[in-house]
Amino acid sequence: MMALATGVLVAGAVIAAALASVRIIAGPTLSDRVVALDIFLAAAIALAVAASLGTGRTVFLDVAIGLALVGFVATIGWARLVHRAPRDPNGGEGP
């Protein structure tokens, strides 16, 4: 039962990360890429939970706590960058 649950979770997280990779490569704007990073964060936390379910050790949950804490820092840093950067009238790649 446990193996089934972790297997499904790992499969879901890997598929989600693969789909998010497509969006990161395709873009087209920086916003899209940062949004896809949010999916990576969720997948990483799900994988950490799956790892601790599989091994029965709580140390992987501590990893997930760290991820949940710092996961939004990249988003905020990037948002500051966009606000400060000169405007690109054509949209597209951004700063």
Partner: peptide, 14 residues
């Protein structure tokens, strides 16, 4: 994160 991301996306998309 969501609020700042939305604002930045608005700025970026004009």
């Amino acid at each position: 994160a969501s609020h700042l991301l939305a604002r930045a996306a608005v700025v970026e998309a004009g």
